[in-house]
């Protein structure tokens, strides 16, 4: 169903991670990604994987739901794994036709897969526990220093949040329009390409008409509430760090230190 194309994958389980300031989660994701690439030995893997399991557990997001996100990149993963497996020179383990798998190849591949899965799950924890709008808020705040260089931080954030709030509305509308045209006998499953493209016109025209209508309404509504850009604008819910956010930062720094130390061993 078209409804399944949800943006982001926010899962409202109400865990402690959901209640953290979104900036902590953005920084946390960044720190986690960095931590994945700064160690060499086996102990590093234990540290990063243990931390990941810890995060998954406190996020209260069902694991089955979480690995759904992995499915989309499985082809990419298999492809890179195969290349690594066959292309890494070293002590041969066994040979198929002209392709040789080496001991080093297996090791490199295993490490790469663990890193890749950790990378994806680690960043997903952020998107599972943060709504797209919170994320935009956090990015706006984190990038605010760029304003000195006349970089339009607020405007970009505003565009992002408008786009984000429009997407689910348009997806729902698309769903209704498609069903309404199906009720008039439209066939979107035809195998022939030209037929398929033609069948889109009765869907795209109403969708664009409605998108323009909504955009126009929104512009009017913003105008009538005297919106004129970011200067001097305050927030209804400004981002404020609380005690738990500071704690979270400390845990993150501690984690990073541990990975650095263990990575040296």
């Amino acid at each position: 169903m078209i409804k399944d194309i949800t943006l982001g994958q926010y899962y409202p389980s109400g865990s402690i991670l959901h209640k953290l300031d979104p900036r902590v989660k953005v920084m946390g994701a960044l720190i986690y990604i960095i931590s994945l690439f700064i160690f060499k030995g086996k102990l590093g893997y234990i540290a990063t994987t243990a931390f990941l399991i810890f995060l998954i557990m406190i996020s209260l997001v069902p694991f089955s739901y979480m690995i759904k996100g992995l499915k989309t990149i499985i082809i990419f993963m298999v492809f890179t794994a195969l290349i690594n497996l066959f292309m890494t020179p070293g002590e041969p383990v066994f040979t198929i036709w002209k392709l040789t798998i080496s001991k080093e190849g297996i090791e490199v591949t295993a490490r790469m897969i663990i890193r890749l899965i950790s990378l994806i799950l680690g960043t997903s924890i952020m998107t599972f526990t943060t709504t797209p709008n919170q994320l935009t808020d956090a990015l706006e705040r984190l990038f605010r220093p760029l304003k000195i260089f006349r970089f339009p931080v607020h405007e970009i954030a505003m565009m992002m949040s408008i786009a984000l709030s429009f997407i689910p509305i348009l997806v729902e509308e698309l769903d209704i329009i498609m069903k309404a045209q199906k009720a008039r006998g439209a066939d979107f499953d035809d195998k022939r390409f030209t037929k398929r493209v033609k069948a889109l016109i009765p869907v795209l025209v109403p969708l664009f008409v409605s998108a323009f209508r909504r955009a126009n309404d929104l512009a009017l509504a913003m105008d009538s509430r005297c919106y004129r850009g970011g200067d001097g604008r305050t927030k209804m819910r400004p981002l404020v760090y609380h005690k738990k956010d500071i704690m979270a930062y400390l845990i993150l720094l501690l984690y990073l230190a541990i990975v650095i130390v263990m990575g040296r061993l």
Binding site: I176, K179, A180, A183, R184, P202, S210
Partner: peptide
């Protein structure tokens, strides 16, 4: 079936194209 059971959606004018 959809020819036999005609369904007019809510706000059907949004589907004119």
């Amino acid at each position: 079936l959809r020819g036999n059971v005609g369904l007019v959606f809510q706000y059907p004018e949004h589907q004119l194209f």
